[in-house]
Every structure is written in C-alpha cells, then in structure tokens.
C-alpha cells in the first residue's frame, strides 16, 4: 500500500468551512432552479474542478437562469454570448480598434465577451467552426490571442455552453476535440410535477429571481485550492484508469473510439470535487461512479453496430460500470458476490 503522499489533507476546520460555503451556494442555486438538485450538484462539481460545462437540453428548462444565478451568487463577472452562424471569432474574443493615444493613432485591443469569469455560450452549436475553434483556445489555455498578442483571461474562468439537441438544421455539431474540452456534458431534464408547481407559484415571466451573493471570488478560489488537496487513494486512481482503459479494451460494448487520458484527469478532478461537496477529505470509487456518466458519455464514439442496436452513450457507460468493479480483487468461483453499495 502507498505511504503518505505530499498532499496535506484537509483539517476539520477547513472541511467545516468549505462544507458551509458550498451548502450556502447549493441552497442559493436551489432557490433559482427548482427540482434540479442533481443538475446543480454537477454544475458545482464542474465549478470546483475548474472545468467547462456543456448543458444540453430543450429550451426553457432554466439553463441560462442557472448560469445567471451562479454568477450572482458568486459575485463573478458574467457574459452571455448568443451563438449564431454569422458570429465571427473576433466577436467573442475582442477586436483591435484604431484609437488615438497620446496624439498617435494606434490599434488598441477591445476585449470581447470572453473576458469574464463566467461565460454563457448559448446554443454553441449554431456558431461556425471557425468561431467554435476560437473558443477552443480560450477554454483550454485560458487566454486569447489577437494579432499575435496573447491576452490572459480572468481567473477563475468558466465556460458554460448550452446546446439544443433537437433543432439540428443549420447547426455545426461540435467536433470531438472540442467536446473533449468540456469537463462535463450534462443533460438538463424537465422538472418533476412538484417542481413545476413550485415554479408556477414562485416565478413570473420577465422577472429574474433575486439571488443573494453567498461567496466572493476569493472564497471561490480558496475552495478551488482546497479541492486540489482532497486525497485520491491509489485504489481510486486504479479504478479510474481501469474505467478509461475499459472504453478501449472491454469487448462487446460497441465503442469505436474510447476516452482519452484527459477523461481520466477529468474523472479524478470531478471525484475530488464531489468528495469536497459531500464533506469528505478523500475521493472514493463511489464519487467516480457518480460522475462517470457526464464525463465519459460525450468522449466515446459508438460503432455502427451499437447505434443500429439502439445503444446510446449512456447505456454503454452503464455497461462499462457493470463490467469493471470498483476493486480488481478477483472473486473465486466458489463465492457469490453480494451487490455492492
């Protein structure tokens, strides 16, 4: 077994403080979006993992509302970009503008909407590939290069993109490389009946809900640092590695192209974030299993036969979880395995 690592585990006071902060944030978001607890948890996991999120769902489910509420609760600068086919890269990154400075006319960079802590890229698949690729650099390198000059984006920087899964005419589906940049792809589902009733009672069209600020930017950065100190046991790392490797090696799943090492890093980061969210100083295999769907299902490409059989990425990931147990302890044939928790 491994010995003590260089990670300084969270102490009780740090754990208590972080749990309190995250609870306040969760409550604030629950007041913005009723009946979407799992969606809110995934958004918070993505936030703590410094990851970008792709929200996929039908219009009117509250995706934009959630992002706006998040920005208000965290007191972060937020910008919203409505992606359209004629949107140019300069429209989101910013353009050099000819200005007179100290009596001389010179180009001055005018930052675009990407220069914000929280960027809501609405209907991202409607933009042209050229514009999408401009977003790619910003998401991966957290900087924007215009006319050979790189401009750093603010810290923290999050992209929350949305896309509509049904109106595909006139859209440019995100390429695999760009999809891989998103830490999580979260499917936004419709609210339950009780939540719908609550929305009808508490919301009015055109009136945005009031969200009190619960965390400052510094608090958020502090939480992001604490997330890095969550201990990831070797057995969990082994489980993550086996899962990602399984997308390539497990036969019969119907996967044409499996997940990349970036997926493994994403799993580790998300597992750490979920552990902090649940007030635990170490990540566990349960955390991995909880986040494996939104992390893996947009990173695998099914083969033709699987698609013909009606399989989806979600069902394939479910099969993968069933195939690969949390520990690689071989079970003798003379023993029966109880259902694991």
């Amino acid at each position: 077994m491994t010995t003590r690592t260089d990670i300084v585990p969270l102490n009780d006071s740090e754990m208590a403080a972080s749990t309190a902060s995250l609870t306040r944030l969760r409550d604030a978001l629950n007041n913005v979006l009723f009946g979407q607890e799992s969606l809110i948890e995934m958004v918070m996991i993505g936030l703590l993992s410094r990851g970008h999120l792709l929200l996929e769902g039908l219009p009117g489910l509250g995706k934009t509302e959630l992002v706006k509420g998040l920005a208000k609760a965290l007191q972060l600068d937020s910008k919203r970009i409505q992606f359209t086919p004629d949107l140019l890269p300069g429209d989101i990154t910013g353009n050099p503008v000819l200005q007179e400075v100290e009596g001389r006319r010179t180009f001055v960079f005018q930052p675009g909407p990407l220069f914000a802590h929280l960027v809501l890229a609405d209907e991202i698949n409607r933009a042209s590939p050229k514009t999408q690729s401009a977003l790619l650099e910003a998401m991966q390198e957290r900087q924007v290069t215009v006319m050979g000059v790189a401009y750093a984006l603010p810290n923290p920087f999050f992209v929350l993109a949305t896309q509509n899964p049904i109106e595909l005419e006139g859209t440019y589906p995100l390429p695999e490389a760009q999809l891989d940049r998103f830490l999580l792809k979260i499917e936004v589902r419709r609210s339950a009946l009780e939540a719908l009733e609550k929305i009808v009672l508490n919301r009015k069209i055109g009136v945005e809900p009031e969200v009190p600020p619960v965390l400052s930017r510094e608090d958020l950065v502090g939480l992001l640092d604490l997330t890095q100190r969550i201990y990831l046991p070797p057995v969990v790392a082994n489980y993550i590695a086996r899962l990602v490797d399984g997308t390539h090696t497990v036969a019969g799943l119907g996967i044409k192209y499996g997940a990349s090492p970036r997926a493994a890093l994403a799993l580790a980061a998300a597992a750490r974030s979920r552990a902090l969210l649940h007030g635990r100083p170490n990540a566990s295999t349960e955390d991995v299993r909880a986040v494996v769907h939104p992390i893996l299902q947009h990173r695998i490409i099914l083969d033709y036969n699987a698609r013909l059989d009606g399989a989806s990425s979600a069902t394939v990931v479910e099969k993968l979880l069933a195939e690969i147990p949390p520990h690689d302890l071989e079970r003798p044939k003379t023993l029966l395995d109880a259902k694991l928790r």
């Binding site: 057995v235 566990s284 928790r341």
Partner: peptide, 18 residues
C-alpha cells in the same frame, strides 16, 4: 471498504492520510 460503503476511508487510513 467497498462493501461497507466506507468511501475508501480504510485505504486512506492505511496510507496514513486519514
């Protein structure tokens, strides 16, 4: 720890972290 739902606390304790 897997069967008992201990969230890998035993592995972490074995490593001296927790």
């Amino acid at each position: 720890e897997t069967v008992l739902g201990l969230h890998n606390q035993l592995s972490s304790a074995q490593a001296g972290i927790l």
